[in-house]
């Protein structure tokens, strides 16, 4: 029995229906737990209460990138092995990824306002995330623009492939560009470094929570897409029949 068995929509529906409640419970527990625990952490001597934002900012940023990678993998699986569930999973993941990118950008802006004195800095990291958000928007727009589902899956898959290369390229181009503008000025707050256990454990929990939350949303949204596809097939048969 191989993993490809679950590429069958019926098997996928059965399996995802069975594990979905557990994932939802885990996602709610870990996300709420991590975020509330993070909210209750003591003040940082340098950043004051703003350090609490890290428990939203970092998990959201992590998921924003990971969801794109997941979309790349599922797009490749669709393009190579033609498993419909894979293409639908990529479609289902994109809006979640866009929201995660938006959360990372919004919390970053709100955090940056008191720390850097401005809502927005053309810092390499921030700029890359803005570009990533543009890629998400383009990908979602392309999905909704094409009527034929298989063509849509193919074209968005190719776009995801090319987009991944250019998102990565932009990441390094932006690094070059910013250093060209103001040398040596690094505003990014390196997460994970010099972070005490008080902040680290709630952060881990929050990251796990966001991961499970994404998984739950991914399962729900993929199930929605499969149902819509089946509905369309039934309606087509009725019209023909």
């Amino acid at each position: 029995m191989s993993i490809w068995e679950y590429a069958n929509p019926v098997k996928f529906m059965r399996l995802s229906g069975a594990i979905l409640p557990w994932v939802v419970v885990g996602a709610v527990l870990c996300t709420v737990g991590g975020v509330v625990w993070g909210f209750l952490t003591p003040l940082d001597y340098k950043q004051g209460a703003t350090v609490k934002i890290v428990f939203l900012h970092v998990p959201a940023a992590m998921m924003a990138i990971n969801i794109w990678v997941m979309m790349l993998v599922t797009s490749l699986i669709w393009l190579i092995r033609r498993h419909h569930v894979s293409a639908l999973a990529a479609k289902a993941a994109a809006p979640v990824g866009a929201v995660m990118t938006l959360i990372a950008l919004a919390t970053g802006a709100i955090w940056g306002q008191p720390m850097w004195g401005s809502w927005w800095e053309w810092d390499p990291r921030l700029t890359s995330f803005l570009i990533l958000f543009l890629f998400y928007v383009g990908y979602i727009a392309l999905w909704s623009a094409i009527e034929d589902p298989d063509s849509a899956a193919d074209l968005t898959g190719v776009l995801c492939l090319v987009g991944s290369v250019f998102a990565l390229l932009s990441r390094y181009a932006v690094l070059f560009w910013n250093q060209g503008l103001h040398q040596g000025a690094s505003l990014s707050v390196a997460p994970g470094e010099r972070m005490s256990a008080v902040y680290r454990y709630p952060l881990y929990l929050s990251m796990l929570g966001f991961l499970l939350l994404f998984l739950a949303l991914l399962l729900i949204r993929t199930r929605t897409e499969i149902r819509r596809r089946r509905l369309a097939a039934l309606q087509a048969r009725e019209i023909r029949g």
């Binding site: 570009i131 727009a141 392309l142 623009a145 776009l159 250019f166 932009s170 181009a173 932006v174």
Partner: peptide
Amino acid sequence: LLSLLVLPLYIPTLI
């Protein structure tokens, strides 16, 4: 849609 898809791809060249 074409502009939306293509413009982000132009960023590295522009930079």
